[in-house]
Computed example of a mutant assay.
Amino acid sequence: MNSPVTTIKDPQEKKTVGFKFDVQSYTLIIAVVVIAMIFGFFTSGEFLSSRNLSNLFTQMAVISVLAVGMTLVIVAGHIDLSVGSIVGLTGGIAAILQVWQGWNTVTVVLAAIIVGAVIGLWQGWWVAYRNVPAFIVTLGGMLVFRGILIGISKGQTVAPLSTSFGQIGNSFIPYAVGYILAVIAVVFLFIAKIRSRAKRQTLGLTLAPTFIDYGKITVYSVCIIIVTYMLNRYLGIPVPMLIVVVLAGIFLFVSHKTSFGRFTYAIGGNVEAAALSGINIKRNVLFVFILMGALAGIAGVLLTSRLNAATTSAGTSYELDAIAACVIGGTSLMGGKGKIVGAIIGALIMTSIDNGMSMMNIEAFWQYIVKGLILIFAVWLDVSNQKK
């Protein structure tokens, strides 16, 4: 009797990877392009002017900083509804210390960040070590911190701040420095891709075709140069935008290249499996909230600096914009999935809608309606993908 012939594939055999356009991966970029084209058309190109782009990137800085931290919070399987109040409180403390107490700019900035981190520590302790749901802890915090702000400021607007403090949120990088930074960013992208491909080859992993990998990097590089050129046509790259880029780079490294980042994704993906793997759940959740509080402190400084004043209503509803930016950017409310870059693009989309509709003189209530519908649609997409 003839035995059946079994074909054994050579493990060293390489697959041929063809060009495949993943629509889902580029949905955000497509959305940004469509939004820019629509508002550019209805504003006779003013939306895409250098001046408006500069204002747009400055306006989105606060929400972007919050979205960076909120991504980690949601990835870990939690939520933070207090970040808007923390922004108002930390910004108010910075203004009070400078205007009423005469502290210098460096000291008040550090004080705002430290206060934010301490608030995050307090909330994280309740969530991680007392097992109180983050929704309840941060909802209570939203009320507590807003009340503290009204109390310490006596309901007054605290202004004006020093020139050096105002430059944090309103200054620009010189043209030449902007181009140098753009070139450095392009070189870094290519070096990172070269190292990534070399590492995958060493590990025996499948490599995408060279023209696809480097084609993407080339497109990103062209976009960086064009954005830099457009911003330099006005006053240069806004400092708040540079702060967002630096923070995004730091947290990209933290989330992908450190054990803390990998543990955070593991906790959100399956907390029981993470615990059985030896991950310290409580400590990592605590650190996530501390980082969120510190980033809210930075956002508070940026907002207060840009407005050159601290008010009792500062930061109101910012937590909703930050959460919406994360969800639109692909962060799953189920936990375990989310990208820093996606959240920042989500913040850009949210800010672009506000900016574009304002330029078209559309009434404010329509902005809320449109953003709410976009948020519902983004969550629906997330739930649909989870089911699949």
Score class of each variant (00 low, 15 high):
5 V>S: 08
8 I>L: 10
8 I>F: 05
21 F>H: 12
25 S>Q: 14
27 T>M: 13
29 I>V: 15
45 G>C: 04
52 N>R: 13
54 S>R: 10
61 A>Q: 06
62 V>I: 08
63 I>P: 01
63 I>Y: 01
64 S>Y: 06
69 G>W: 01
71 T>W: 09
73 V>G: 03
81 L>I: 06
82 S>D: 01
82 S>I: 00
87 V>P: 01
88 G>D: 03
107 T>C: 03
111 A>H: 10
113 I>P: 03
125 W>K: 02
137 V>K: 08
141 G>V: 02
154 K>C: 00
161 L>Y: 04
177 V>I: 14
183 V>S: 12
184 I>R: 10
187 V>P: 02
189 L>S: 14
189 L>P: 00
191 I>F: 11
198 A>M: 13
204 G>I: 14
211 F>Y: 15
213 D>W: 02
215 G>K: 11
219 V>K: 07
229 Y>D: 10
230 M>C: 13
232 N>G: 15
248 A>C: 12
251 F>S: 10
253 F>T: 15
275 A>P: 00
277 S>G: 15
281 I>T: 04
287 F>Q: 10
290 I>G: 04
297 G>K: 11
298 I>Y: 02
303 L>R: 02
312 T>W: 00
327 V>H: 11
333 L>W: 03
333 L>Y: 02
336 G>D: 05
343 A>Q: 07
344 I>A: 10
345 I>N: 10
346 G>C: 01
356 G>S: 09
358 S>H: 07
360 M>C: 08
362 I>K: 09
363 E>F: 05
366 W>K: 00
376 I>V: 14
382 D>F: 04
385 N>S: 15
